[in-house]
């Protein structure tokens, strides 16, 4: 080693070779320990950022669309509400009308029915009265036939009978 040591002042080619070897070794080490993982991470981040930006734009447009949709729906629901109220009013009016007319017709019907029934009852009563009078006449005739009566007795009897009839008619 000692005789290899020389002190001189001229160019040394060994330095160049040493530098190239060192430099290549350094490149290999840097690539293995730092460049590879770091650039990978940077690419990954760039990818993630672009993905995130795309996602953000997408969700933004989606949100805008939804907002517009909601706005239009709100508008629609307002008109719809007005419509509903209007139809309800209309329906109420209609049903009121119907109820009133129904009640009126029913009342009229009832009235006419009652009238008819009263008429019927009256005719029935008259008919039965007539029949009764006939029956009574028959009874009287029978009674007269059974009993020998003179004209005065007969007249008195009829008068009394009629009187009783009218009395009965009045009380009825």
């Amino acid at each position: 080693m000692a005789n290899g040591l020389v002190i001189a002042a001229n160019a040394s080619l060994g330095d160049s070779i040493f530098l190239i070897v060192t430099f290549i070794l350094l490149m290999w080490l840097v690539k293995h320990f730092a460049w590879g993982p770091v650039t990978k991470m940077m690419d990954k981040r760039a990818q993630k950022i672009s993905d995130d930006l795309d996602g953000a734009a997408k969700s933004r447009s989606q949100a805008e669309q939804m907002a517009a949709q909601r706005q239009s729906e709100l508008k629609n629901s307002k008109t719809e509400a007005i419509q509903i109220v209007n139809t309800a009013k209309e329906n109420g009016e209609k049903s009121r009308q119907e109820i009133v007319t129904g009640a009126q017709t029913e009342a009229a019907q009832l009235k006419s029915k009652a009238k008819a029934e009263a008429e019927q009852a009256k005719t029935d009563a008259l008919n039965s009265a007539r029949e009764d009078v006939g029956q009574i006449a028959v009874n009287i005739a029978e009674a007269l036939i059974k009993k020998d009566l003179n004209a005065d007795d007969q007249k008195e009897l009829i008068d009394a009978y009629i009187k009783g009839l009218t009395n009965a008619d009045e009380t009825r």
Partner: peptide, 21 residues
């Protein structure tokens, strides 16, 4: 002044080698 090493006919400047390293 530098110290030089000669290995297999190649001259090495120790200052350069050490600082490069």
């Amino acid at each position: 002044k530098y110290q030089y090493l000669t290995i297999m006919g190649l001259k090495f400047n120790t200052a350069n080698c050490i600082s490069t390293l």
